[in-house]
Amino acid sequence: MQTSKRTVRFKIYRYDPDKDSRPYMQDISVELDPTDKKLLDALVRIKDKDDSLSFRRSCREGVCGSDALNINGTNGLACLTDVDDLSQPIVLRPLPGLPVIRDLIVDMTQFFKQYHSVKPYLINDDPPPERERLQSPEEREELNGLYECILCACCSTACPSFWWNPDKFVGPSGLLNAYRFIADTRDKATNDRLDNLEDPYRLFRCHTIMNCVAVCPKELNPARAINKIKDMMVIRAI
């Protein structure tokens, strides 16, 4: 673990539509304190010197999903990435494939549109019982690895299929969330959910490239969830 002051070099994507005609890469060096361990700590340090550097951040512990970036070519969360593990200059870009609003801030409209398109809520029209709906520990375990998604968009914006068809392909995050409800024994809309994805693009544009699995900061496996949905499509067709 790094315990001393050190200077770290960056190349950061800059673009302010209010004053820049086009984006550019800016070379920045910053001195870090011994307590600055994560990439987010370094970004905050840079912003202390140049308040115009714009990026999103909130919880700083990897659970809110705000600070996803493209870090040395790989998507990840700034708050979970150890700055001393990165080769320098550390190249920071906004998440690929989404429109850039300013600097490291992207427009996530398309990403959330796809999330919303899978009806990401429990559907069960039976009158609710007085107490909780029962679910065995084994049934509940089926949701592990699914419900923990933080909607950071690291996976979908690492996916070539999503880059090509962000308006038509649901993308790994949306599909993981679709399967989260299919897998829930309390949900009664499995058939409708499969109908909703039975389409050459929405589900089947996934070509199992596996970038989603490689980059997920929560170590989830969207590709496995997608395969399970594909299997259910096949079983349903027989």
Binding site: L122, N124, E130, R131, E132, L134, R140, F181, D184, R186
Partner: peptide, 19 residues
Amino acid sequence: VIELEHYGMPFDRTDNGKI
């Protein structure tokens, strides 16, 4: 809390299926 369970919150479960 029961309402939240009905909304779909993935509570952990006891062996008899309760929250």
